[in-house]
Simulated scan of single mutants.
Amino acid sequence: MNQTYIALLRGINVGGKVLKMTDLKEAVAGLGFEDVKTYLQSGNMVFRAAKASNVELAERIASAIKAHKAMDVKIMVRSVREWDRVITDNPYPQAEEKPKTVHAFILDDQPGKDRIAILRTKDAGSEEWTIVGDALYLHTPDGFGKSVLGNLIERTLKVPMTARNWNTVKALGELAAGL
């Protein structure tokens, strides 16, 4: 029985690295995925596939994109169950009323304790962050555009990650639940 997954493509449609969502769907068409749906133009996809590891699915999608568009893309995959945990584990209830003030950074690896300690020393002003499982939640009361930590998190923690605002996190959860 197929399971539902969410794929997050990192760095797509920013900085000149363009991948249309129609091209993404074409690229993965031969992988045997079902019910492939994309969300926005920022590299978000939900699909159903035979049970496999997140890493295996990410590698298959990345290879398909490379073969179809000659692009190297970092991809992170989470099962719908894992994504539901990202939603329920959010420590910032402000996200419900002001979803643009909370971002979930999906971590590909766990950062070392030394790297976390360094991030804690950064002057964050009114911003707060918390790591729960494989997600770092960043609350930016003044908005992500004015965030002090938004651009420091990955450079400081030194693990691959990709961030989505709370509207997108919830929308992907709803899209996946509908498959």
Rank of each mutant, 00 (worst) to 15 (best):
M1A: 13
N2H: 09
N2Q: 09
N2Y: 10
Y5H: 06
I6G: 01
A7S: 08
L9R: 01
L9F: 15
R10H: 05
R10C: 14
R10D: 12
N13C: 11
V14T: 14
V14H: 09
V14L: 15
V14Y: 10
G15E: 14
G16E: 15
K17V: 13
K17I: 08
V18Q: 09
L19S: 07
D23S: 15
L24Y: 08
L24N: 04
K25P: 00
A27D: 09
A27S: 13
V28R: 02
G30V: 11
F33W: 13
K37S: 09
T38Q: 07
S42V: 09
G43I: 12
N44R: 07
M45R: 01
R48H: 03
A50R: 04
K51W: 05
A52I: 06
S53W: 08
N54P: 01
V55G: 01
R60V: 05
A64V: 05
I65N: 00
I65R: 00
I65C: 03
A70G: 00
M71Y: 03
D72H: 01
V73D: 02
K74W: 03
M76R: 01
M76Y: 08
M76S: 06
M76T: 01
V77T: 01
V77G: 03
R78H: 00
V80Q: 14
V80C: 06
E82W: 08
R85C: 00
R85H: 04
I87F: 07
N90V: 04
Y92G: 02
Y92M: 14
P93E: 14
P93K: 05
A95F: 13
A95N: 04
K98H: 06
K100G: 06
T101S: 09
T101H: 04
V102L: 13
V102N: 02
H103E: 15
F105H: 08
I106K: 00
L107E: 11
D108F: 12
D109Y: 11
D109N: 14
D109L: 13
Q110G: 03
P111I: 09
K113Q: 15
I116W: 10
I116S: 02
A117Y: 11
I118F: 13
K122D: 02
G125I: 10
G125L: 12
E127S: 04
T130A: 13
I131K: 04
D134P: 02
H139L: 14
D142P: 01
G143P: 07
G143F: 14
K146T: 03
S147A: 11
V148E: 04
L149V: 05
T156Y: 11
T156S: 02
L157D: 08
L157C: 06
K158D: 15
K158F: 10
V159Q: 04
P160R: 07
P160F: 06
P160T: 03
P160D: 12
R164N: 10
R164T: 05
N165H: 05
W166G: 07
N167A: 09
V169S: 06
L172I: 06
L172C: 02
G173S: 03
G173N: 10
E174Y: 05
L175N: 01
L179I: 07
L179Y: 02
